[in-house]
Design a protein around this nucleic acid. Sequence first.
DNA 1: CGACCAATTGAATTGATTCAAGGTCCGTGG
DNA 2: CCACGGACCTTGAATCAATTCAATTGGTCG
Lengths: 217, 217
Amino acid sequence: MFSQHGSRQEHTLQPTTADADLARVLDHTTASSVAFYPTNSVIYAQGESAGPLYLVEFGTVRVYRISTDGRRQITSFYFAGEVFGFEADPEHQCYAESVDGVGIRTLRIKAGEQVAEGLLRLALRGIARIQSHMLMLGRASATARLAKFLLDLMDQQESDDGVALQMQRADIGDYLGMTFETVSRVLHVFKERGLVQLPTADRVLVPSRERLASLCA
Amino acid sequence: MFSQHGSRQEHTLQPTTADADLARVLDHTTASSVAFYPTNSVIYAQGESAGPLYLVEFGTVRVYRISTDGRRQITSFYFAGEVFGFEADPEHQCYAESVDGVGIRTLRIKAGEQVAEGLLRLALRGIARIQSHMLMLGRASATARLAKFLLDLMDQQESDDGVALQMQRADIGDYLGMTFETVSRVLHVFKERGLVQLPTADRVLVPSRERLASLCA
DNA sequence: CGACCAATTGAATTGATTCAAGGTCCGTGG
DNA sequence: CCACGGACCTTGAATCAATTCAATTGGTCG
């Protein structure tokens, strides 16, 4: 259906899901035209001055930080219809890059204060998501993390039989706090147990959502 | 200076640090009088309806989630002058409890929209903090995590020679994503290496901030 | 075909956990 | 005043999950 690293130039103007908060924010911001970022290009870097927000039109974005010892922690992936780029400081604390071909609109705030409540709600959603992720990073086993990741992707892609992995193993590892070898091994175990099929490296078929979900404990 | 689990009834009306965003929020909210929560009491529970924000007047608060398998992840500690209780959903997703004796004001939003921008900024600060924490949970060793934790506490307490650990080992462990035994062991290693002294279990003296900081890599 | 990058698989190692046993501190009651 | 109990902390030994390092396979593209 989708080429693995293909650049999908087409896009829709409206986000994938109806969203009151997003709509409100769009009403009070000036949206740029869609800029295209090829695979692995930088959207913004740590230290750059922050300002506009970013709306994903299509594709996948990874936002990450680098620790002092050079390790990368991906804090979140963003997909079509999602907004990222919230910053507490005048400078970006994170890097944002395209995972595959990505289309982005920048949103610049026009009016006064009426946007803030919408923005606040969008930001709060981000917090909730990050907190869930933190819960996993702190405690869950590699098995549980990967199972949860696949289930989240199924929700995001609104699929009940499998997911497309736009990102490579190293990205998944850096998101879940494990090495890419471990990602590979755990996927292998899932396959052996009949929990998933891997027709290609970037496609995961999930015969039973429930059985996979039972590993998240 | 402070009794370990003592209940400090006195409080100041102004937060510990001058803070424009907080001041702005206070201007547009109705603050309750200070409620006192003894050690280990519940401030709010997961599933309760969210609404007001909470301003810590004195003491230490832990906010945590419980994973499906019963493990606890403390997402953040909050100290005097800090605001917590931001929620994306109408229901609390987290538990909030007092670590020691805590004084709390609830803040209810009065006016229309002008608060939102201040709230937004406070919330964004929360995001930044949580993201840093996530960076640690994903990758850092137990040694690095604990060193960072102690340094953060030194900043928070504005001390350059040590910290008071209001929370017990299990709390620290659940915050840093390790067992309380590991917390204890790593502290022991720090002591052996002369990085810290432990006159009592709840007091850590740090002779050289720099040497401790060198472990955070 | 050959080069390159991603993914897989294997073997040894390590860091942290688990389970278990002591030790310390503190408040309570004899 | 001291003995007792309970909560918290420390320490030890065995285990285990995940990493590291290394080799191999698979896929893609010029």
